[in-house]
Amino acid sequence: MRDERFNFAFLDERSKRMIRRALLKAIAIPGYQVPFGSREMPLPYGWGTGGIQVTASVIGPNDVLKVIDQGADDTVNAVNIRRFFQRTTGVAVTERAPEATLIQTRHRIPETPLHERQIIVYQVPVPEPLQRLEPREAETRRMHGLAEYGLMHVKLYEDIARYGHIATTYDYPVMVNGRYLTAPSPIPKFDNPKMNMNPALQLFGAGREKRIYAIPPYTRVESLAFEDHPFEVQRWDAACALCGSRESFLDEVVTDDRGGRLFMCSDTDYCAGRQAAKAAAA
């Protein structure tokens, strides 16, 4: 039920228009970080203020919203953001990925493949993939402008030199459309291949850093690597203890204080769907 004391989707219309303009530019230049006038939101930085502003600017009354945090629909962050949009827009919400038209996510991409009629909005803490290597922003912007990305491989080189393999597992840098080096937000690198040629529109919002970027549908997204150390995703020896999946991203759960542990899907909706299908078949 919408709370009429707020403007639709909380933001005022001028702010939404400004953000939409930034979004259009971001979509026109895939992977390029567009600065925008990030607004104060009723929750602290780090809780998804960038993602919320993007969602608020694209959401309409007919959208069906899904919010996930680390793959789950029922964590504090996801529940709060979902309730926020229910109150300020009154839109329908769902936990079922295929039924959603708009998915706001923190740190995962759903296991169920996205489709053309969907938009996925990522919450981004650090939009600049070069930031840890080159702290001067004027310099990183120049590097993007001139497509000088050797430095990113320095980071991967360091990984191999130190650990024998590329040890970066989250926020693994990608090249978008063969041009812009881009941070995929802290999703596991397991999800990186899903970004490539994805039918859905992918939008990224960084509230504190005041940057928006985008990957339009069916855009090439490559994970960086070396010829002799190619990109690889995580694998598990175990299957999901609940649904038996061997294809999904698994979380390790400690079950007691005697070292007992099991693995289960990080994507709760996907897992629940598989369990339901199994139960129906049985």
């Binding site: 050797g150 430095l151 320095v154």
Partner: peptide
């Protein structure tokens, strides 16, 4: 120098900037 990466990465950086993508050769 880049003080926060190893000696090898410091030497290899220019090669990577020129598009060298083979770890063994950089090494």
């Amino acid at each position: 120098l880049r003080m926060n990466v190893s000696a090898g990465a410091n030497v290899g950086e220019r090669l990577m900037a020129l598009g060298e993508r083979h770890y063994g050769r950089i090494r």
